[in-house]
Structure formats: C-alpha cells, structure tokens
C-alpha cells in the first residue's frame, strides 16, 4: 500500500458563515430606519419591527395561523413531491433521448418562462376555488425548473461513466437509474432549490387569488383588516422557508449522499 491517506470528510458547511458582525449591524440599521420612518410618518396600523416582534408569540400559537401554515406547507410539500417525480422522469427522458428532447424542448421552455399568474385563472376555472387549484399551481410552478435542470444533467453525464457502463455491458434502463440519475444529482439539487422557491410563490399566489386559506390568504385578510403586524409574522415565515429548505437539503445531502460534495459539483 502506498499513500493510504483517507482525507477527512469535508467539514460541515454552514450557510450563515462569513462576516457576522457587519451583517448583523446592517440588519439592525435597516430595522431601525423602518421603525423610525413608520413611527414618524405612517398611521398606527402600519407594521413596525417592534410591533411584529410583539405580535409574534401571540400569532404563532393562534389556531388560524397554524392552520394556514399547515395548509400552505402541506400544499408545497405535496406539489414538490409530484413535481420531483414527474419532473425527474421527464428530465431524464429529455436528457437521454433525442426524440423526447425534440418533441418537448420548446414546450418545456415556454412553460418554464411563463409567469404562473397567467394560468391561475384557468386553474381556478378547471379546479374551482379549491385546494386542487392551488396544488396544480404549485406543481406547475415547480416542475419545469426540475425538468430543465435534470434534462441538462442527464444530457451532460460524463462520457467516461457511460463508457464504463457500456464496457461492462449494462442495459439501458440500468444505466439510466444507476449512472445517469446519480450523475445528474448536482443538477437536480440546483433545480430543486429553484423549484422550492417557485412552489412557495405558486402556493401563496393561488391563495391570494382563490381565497382558499393558507398563509397567502392569512396575509391578505389581516392586512385588509389593518392587522399589519399579524400579517407580517406570516411574511417572516415565508422568508424563513428559503433558509429552512436550504438547511434541510444540505442536511439530507450530507446524511444520505456522503459522496456528494457541493464544492466539487462542477467537476
């Protein structure tokens, strides 16, 4: 045995690293400006940072808020799951089959670029003012970024891997699942992050339009009844979703895909 060093597993990468102090100071300055401007020039009901903080403990245990949160996150999770399954399937097909790519390429890109707002009236017409319309919007919002990413990934699987598979006489289906799929994973994860953000937007926008409950409706209702601070608690939760999802995928990647290191994904 020669050089038998096993390098230590890459250190955990936290998302919040970096110049912590300047970052906190900048945040505090922005919040102070907000507080000052509202107190000086705006009517009472306009949200302020302190108002939001004070409303926080009350709102996050209130039944309407919890119900709304569960509804929205449930729809996002369900829609993302559907988008992942079908998006990955379609993406793999497009990445590995010239025919599938020729047939679908323009349609996928057209839908990918299309603002979800324009399909909402149609979805609410087809599905009614129901959770199904919201779910459809979430799926529609999320699926195409996964299709595009996985398609790119499956298309650019390193030739070396495919050659090894061919040399060992692997079948087409086997190669698709054992080689193409894991090799596309970095692309899939990139697509999933975009998809998660879009899914959340889709859910909230659907709730604005169809008034079927959820955080979107919660925000709309509270701001229209001059409960700005209450509405803002929900806004904070929506903002936290991005961070939370990112942490969740990072954790899941480390836990279940130890071989995958994001810093070398471009290799």
């Amino acid at each position: 045995m020669t050089v038998t060093t096993i390098t230590a597993v890459a250190p955990r990468r936290f998302q919040m690293t970096g110049p912590t102090v300047p970052r906190l100071v900048a945040g505090l300055v922005i919040l102070a400006l907000w507080e000052g401007v509202v107190r000086g020039f705006a009517p009472d009901f306009v949200a302020t940072p302190t108002g939001i903080v004070l409303a926080f403990p009350r709102v996050i245990v209130s039944a309407p808020f919890l119900a709304a949160l569960a509804q929205t996150l449930g729809a996002v999770a369900e829609g993302l799951a559907i988008a992942i399954v079908f998006g990955t399937t379609i993406g793999l097909a497009m990445g590995r089959s010239v025919l599938a790519d020729r047939v679908l390429h323009h349609y996928v890109n057209a839908f990918y670029a299309m603002p979800m707002l324009v399909v909402l009236p149609l979805f609410s017409l087809w599905f009614g003012y129901t959770g199904a319309a919201r779910l459809a919007t979430v799926v529609f919002s999320a699926i195409f970024s996964i299709v595009v990413s996985v398609g790119d990934g499956a298309h650019s699987v390193p030739h070396d891997y495919l050659e090894v598979a061919h040399s060992f006489r692997a079948g087409r289906i086997c190669t698709l699942f054992e080689i193409v799929l894991p090799a596309s994973l970095p692309y899939f994860l990139a697509g999933l992050r975009i998809a998660a953000g879009r899914a959340l937007i889709g859910a909230v926008v659907a709730e604005f339009f169809t008034a079927i409950g959820g955080l979107g409706y919660f925000i709309l209702f509270n701001s229209r009844t001059f409960h700005d601070n209450t509405a803002f608690v929900a806004v904070v939760f929506l903002a936290a979703f991005g961070i939370g999802f990112d942490l969740l995928t990072s954790w899941a990647t480390r836990r279940f895909l130890p071989w995958y290191r994001r810093d070398e994904a471009a290799e």
């Binding site: 070396d160 891997y161 090894v164 054992e178 994973l185 071989w259």
Partner: peptide, 14 residues
C-alpha cells in the same frame, strides 16, 4: 473482456 481505464472510471457515488 474487461477494461481498465486511464482515468479509473470509478463511479463517485459508489
């Protein structure tokens, strides 16, 4: 017939 590849051809996920 088996081949050994210049750049090893190992699958990083295995």
């Amino acid at each position: 017939i088996a081949m050994v590849f210049q750049h090893f051809g190992l699958f990083p996920w295995k």
